[in-house]
Nucleic acid binder design. Structure first.
Lengths: 227, 227
DNA sequence: CATGTTCTAACTGTATACAAAATACAGGAT
DNA sequence: ATCCTGTATTTTGTATACAGTTAGAACATG
């Protein structure tokens, strides 16, 4: 009998709106579409070669995520990036990541800890080598691993939601050498607390980690006279 | 000079999609559209007497909120309500409300505390009178007042987002007399901590308050053999 | 010169039309 | 009787068309 059960390639039949949402999100986060940029439907339709219907649905999704603002009758625009909003953002992500750490400390396996040790070694090496893109990737992987170990999809979704805004800010700023070194040290503390399975300590460390990250970012924006 | 500044009737120029989003949200939260109900575009269009375009945009907004799921090619449906998701929900709202309490303890004015004392008295009276709708309203007002005193719009939005799911669960369940009495007592502790401006204690109390609320709700769903 | 007005062009909000896919159902084969 | 298969119907995904509003420029006016 021929094998008809095993799927070969799983044909990708995503709606255009979903694809547009993802692409626009990247453009906004990476700053190609800067804050306050007007999102003319006509221009975007031409750019992506689609009609207005799926494009509008994509814009509405991004509006629900807070990356786009829609003013009735005046069209959509990339959400502004204000210092006030950044200041608000980091405490919130802080407690959420803190909760993720707390849960992860309870649930993580020895294999999970081993993997994080490996990632931490990578992080240190990349810092020493001055490999910023690699560092950012590993950094994201570490936090993702903690969230995954927490085993709470609702929590992960909430963080991802806010993290989009954070990443946008980070893409528009740049990491100072001092803050970079400090962050690496903080990651060592994170790993320590996790290895000790000390949830309370891990939560506190993560919360402070996020607070410091936020302070560094807002300081930079403020110095640059932004907003 | 004629008075052009004072608005007469504030002409309602909201887009249909926004209105539809709000109405559908209520129908979902209140259980009129129960979990897993298929959301046929045609049927909803007839019901609201609008075309498919604004309706689809509304569905997409609700999908981003997590109240609706969209399966490509198969249409939209009210998001299922699972015990697993409820279990995940309450710890997250707990830390967020906890943070709100922490910030509120720092920022709240004496007038704000006085207002909360009044609301607390109302709450107790409504409990004693067995006025459940009134109680739920006052309860919501209290938590809203705390969030407002926290002065963090991002935090408020995050909580509101998750609270929609919580309210849906609560609408589908019902409050037991024991849990009701317990909740009233917990609210007294909340007010105490806030009046003392003890942020750490308030955060802990709020977190436990949410955890207890969650335990009571999930216990009920479990007993009912749901999900 | 500043202010207000009118007209035009462009754009958004909504409805409808068309194409492709999914579901439902009937008929036939095993 | 059960399962498969082909067809019809319904429904979704996308494009286009139309109406109303907004923004901007040219123009008139105090």
């Amino acid at each position: 009998m021929t094998d008809t059960a095993t799927p070969i390639a799983a044909i990708d039949r995503r709606p255009l709106a979903a694809e547009l949402t993802d692409r626009l999100r990247v453009l906004i986060i990476e700053g190609t579409l800067p804050p306050e940029a007007k999102l003319s439907e006509q221009a975007l339709c031409a750019r992506f070669a689609v009609s207005r219907t799926p494009l509008r649905e994509a814009l509405r999704s991004l509006a629900a995520e807070g990356l786009v603002v829609m003013r009735p009758g005046r069209g959509a625009a990339v959400a502004p990036l204000t210092l006030a909003e950044l200041d608000e953002l980091f405490p919130v992500i802080g407690v959420l990541e803190g909760l993720a750490g707390e849960l992860a400390a309870r649930n993580i396996t020895d294999a999970g800890i081993a993997r994080l040790r490996m990632l931490q070694a990578e992080l240190v090496a990349q810092h020493r080598a001055g490999d910023l893109p690699g560092y950012l990737r590993t950094n994201a992987e570490i936090h993702a691993a903690i969230r995954e170990a927490a085993g709470n999809a609702t929590l992960s979704a909430s963080i991802a939601h806010l993290d989009a805004k954070l990443r946008r800010a980070r893409c528009l700023a740049n990491l100072s050498p001092e803050r970079w070194a400090e962050a690496v040290e903080e990651h060592a503390l994170i790993l320590d607390a996790l290895a000790a399975r000390d949830g309370a300590r891990l939560a506190a460390v993560l919360r402070r980690h996020l607070a410091n990250k936020g302070a560094a970012l807002t300081r930079q924006f403020r110095a640059r006279g932004v907003n």
